[in-house]
């Protein structure tokens, strides 16, 4: 008992000790894009000068993520998809949901149904504006995943099955990987190398948004899939 208490106090102290420098650090963060920031004084000067022109995006970070370092980002998308594959392989996909004894509260049911479409629109907004504002595919994907998890609390199994069959879930989760691979291959004819983006700004923007949409939809479906797989594994 005493040891447990001591352990708790130690945990609290450690968390506080971690939180204080983190908060201090956050306040000290240089303003994004500020020229005097340490991250911006060396290599990134070149990025800042020519990034917007070469990256094909008004937002430098998005340009770097989706163009200069597209291969890295492709790797990240693959990692997320593989994570779901691994969890699904271990935990199963929980598609045969059985009867749940307690119906959800009518208040929660109504509010989630009301808010759901608005969350989806906000997620799409974050995804589509990823090339202008900070944010983009991954953040929008988190929102989409949160929406799917919320909806799963109140929707009955048949409606879910009618909306998205088990087979199309897999394609949805692979969207990020597929879109990325497609854009990468399209770079060959359009720019002459893998992941190349064409010079035409309009086409370039469309491709960037397509990448963001792929990351967002794929990421959201994978997140929700992870939740469902773990939730399904819990009920033995």
């Amino acid at each position: 008992m005493n040891r447990r208490r001591a352990g708790r106090i130690l945990t609290a102290v450690l968390i506080a000790a971690l939180a204080v420098p983190l908060m201090y650090g956050m306040v000290q963060l240089p303003a994004p894009g500020h020229a005097d920031a340490p991250a911006h004084t060396n290599v990134s000067a070149g990025y800042i000068e020519r990034g917007a022109e070469l990256g094909g995006s008004e937002n430098l970070v998005t340009g770097v993520l989706l163009n200069f370092r597209a291969l890295d980002t492709f790797g990240e998308v693959l990692v997320i998809f593989t994570a779901w594959l691994a969890v699904a392989a271990v935990a199963g996909t929980a598609s045969n949901a059985e009867r749940d004894p307690v119906p959800p509260s009518p208040v929660v049911d109504y509010v989630i149904r009301l808010l759901g479409p608005f969350i989806a629109i906000f997620a799409l907004f974050v995804i589509v504006n990823g090339h202008v504002l900070p944010g983009g595919g991954f953040q929008g994907g988190v929102l989409l995943g949160a929406m799917l998890i919320l909806l799963s609390l109140v929707m009955d199994a048949e409606t879910v099955a009618r909306a998205v069959s088990a087979r199309s879930w897999i394609w949805l989760r692979a969207t990020g990987v597929l879109v990325f691979a497609m854009v990468a291959v399209m770079g060959l004819p359009l720019a002459g190398y893998l992941f190349g983006l064409p010079d035409e700004p309009g086409l370039r923007q469309v491709l960037t948004v397509a990448l963001e949409l792929g990351i967002g939809i794929g990421g959201g479906a994978v997140l929700a899939g992870l939740f469902f797989a773990i939730a399904g594994a819990d009920r033995s």
Binding site: S105, V108, V111, L114, L115
Partner: peptide, 10 residues
């Protein structure tokens, strides 16, 4: 105004 009472109720 929508989410806070709903979460509290749930």
């Amino acid at each position: 105004l929508i989410s806070s009472p709903t979460a509290g109720h749930a």
